[in-house]
Amino acid sequence: MAYSEKVIEHYEKPRNVGTFGTQKEIKERQDIGVGLVGAPECGDVMQLQIKVGDDGNIEDAKFKCFGCGSAIASSSLATEWLKGKTLDEGLEIKNTEIVEELSLPPVKIHCSVLAEDAIKSAIADYKEKNTK
């Protein structure tokens, strides 16, 4: 399968790879929201973490991804887009925008869907931690 240049670029130099701590540490931190989506048996798992600043904006984002090049590129792109956004702006990111930006072929659209899910679930996790 031929990949678009943008996918290859993200794959070779993924942005914002990492985590803000171990799974245990992250659970206890109020300023961090985690989205873990996908499943190993489907061939993709994405983990997206957002760090929310005192002003309520997304200050930093990090990802890890088990998946094909398009899944890695989609999650890398998502972290780039999230940084500096408000939570509401983050929720507005659509998978179709990711498809467009990375020129994903039809068989890879699920990667962008997964990235959108990861964003939504990271934001939801943050909100849940902070409503109590």
Partner: peptide, 20 residues
């Protein structure tokens, strides 16, 4: 890059996670 590898290193059993 792999979240699964982190989990493995932290001693988390991947097969026991309820994957969506």
């Amino acid at each position: 890059l792999s979240p699964l590898f982190d989990m493995h290193n932290e001693g988390i059993d991947i097969s026991k996670i309820e994957w969506a």
